[in-house]
Simulated assay, not measured.
Amino acid sequence: MFTRLFSLFEGRHYRYLIVGILVFWINAWIAKWIFTYPYFSEGFYQKNLGNLIALELALLCSYPLHKYITWLEGSEDFFRKLIQFHYYSFLGIIIRILIFACMIFLGFGWLVSSFVSIGFVILVNFVSFDRFVFSPKDDSFSSNSHIYSSFGEGIGTLETIEDAVTYNRWIAAKIEDYLGEKNLEIGAGTGTIAAITSEHFPIDAFDLSRENFQILKKRFRSVKNVQKIGQDILSIKTKNYYDCIYSSNVMEHIEDDTKILNHALSLLKKGGFFVAIVPAMPALYSSFDKKIGHVRRYSKSDIRRWEKSIAPEYKVKWLRRDYFNPIGAFGWLVKMKILNQKQIKKQDAMIMNSLIPFIAWLDYLPLPFGQSMLLVLKKI
């Protein structure tokens, strides 16, 4: 568990936490020094002024530490980024105060409210600094229209953008537990997940889109572990062959998804696994879901539907039917459902990419909701 969590951390995540601890110590030391002066202990306003001065001095110290150590930048745009850094830092402070006040109002104790509000601001500050202060100049926040591919009758299949490396590895890690000597990916798209799983496992990559089929052939031309590239998995007639058949954000595009499920079960060996990562919660279904060809977002009722539709000759056991990524569910609710956003922006995907190392531990909680579901069946 811990090895997998830590593997999601990149260098700047570790450096951010280390520098954050150092800044906390600097802030405490400065505050202690300021309050040695009697003036700052005389009344409410003087005490708050002392805290504000201590905070400002700590921010002035933390900026070069984050610039030079956490994000490994030089001195370019030093003062412009200092202003941005202050802006987002004070925005984080306001958010922390609001969260703390709300939790106190709801009856949580001082300790819990402080812990949650500080933890939340640690995440907010990291994302703000990573995406808006220290982000590369050429990292444009364009939409990810290039990641849509056709499945079936030209229906768009949504994949995570290639640049969201941490996010993609997080998704792939959920699949890799079940891979074996012979594996098949349904709806491989442009090969985002296959590129990761094929690092250690042999993969057959299939995608019904002619365009994606050509991209896959070109991309994996010299990759030894990608053994076969095809289009329609219904054309595969070799029974009891694969150790694992998996898909990531594909089944929701297929009207008759149980037909694909039953065919996949016929191709699996006894003891093989069918793994599907699918968008979850029908309440999150938006006009954007419809636009990109989502027939459904999955829930527990779809699990029961699958159970009833599995052909009697196939005996299966459910290993996983879990919700995950509650933070993504909240983001989808706000962006796609409430604000009715018409596309996934690169900016949004990269924010989630930055957050993954800090929120991946939530996967180990029995959550009743999430942006996605992990469905795993074992053929017995």
Rank of each mutant, 00 (worst) to 15 (best):
H263I: 08
S299T: 09
N212I: 00
T157N: 11
Q227F: 02
F100P: 08
Y14I: 12
I292P: 09
V116I: 15
F358A: 12
Y14H: 12
Y45E: 08
F330I: 15
R210K: 12
F129Q: 15
V275M: 00
N183F: 14
L265W: 12
D204R: 02
S149K: 01
L82T: 12
I351D: 03
L5G: 01
N27V: 02
I21K: 05
L184K: 06
R321T: 09
S89E: 11
V376C: 05
K217G: 15
E307A: 10
F273G: 01
T36Q: 15
A172R: 04
S135N: 14
A360E: 04
R4D: 02
A58P: 03
S142F: 05
G189S: 06
I344T: 07
I203M: 15
D302A: 08
F324Q: 03
F85D: 14
S198F: 05
D177N: 15
H200G: 03
A205I: 07
H294N: 12
K291E: 11
C244A: 12
F2R: 03
I161D: 00
R12H: 14
F126C: 00
S301C: 01
I380V: 10
K308T: 13
I30W: 09
L365T: 07
G230R: 02
H263S: 10
K378V: 05
K378A: 04
N183A: 10
I155L: 11
Y178R: 05
K342C: 02
R12S: 10
V112Y: 09
M350A: 01
V278W: 02
Y37P: 00
D163C: 03
S142N: 08
G92Y: 07
F141R: 06
E153S: 07
Y242F: 13
H200K: 15
R296E: 09
I236N: 04
L362Y: 03
K182Y: 01
Q227N: 12
I277D: 03
G370N: 05
L106P: 01
P368Q: 07
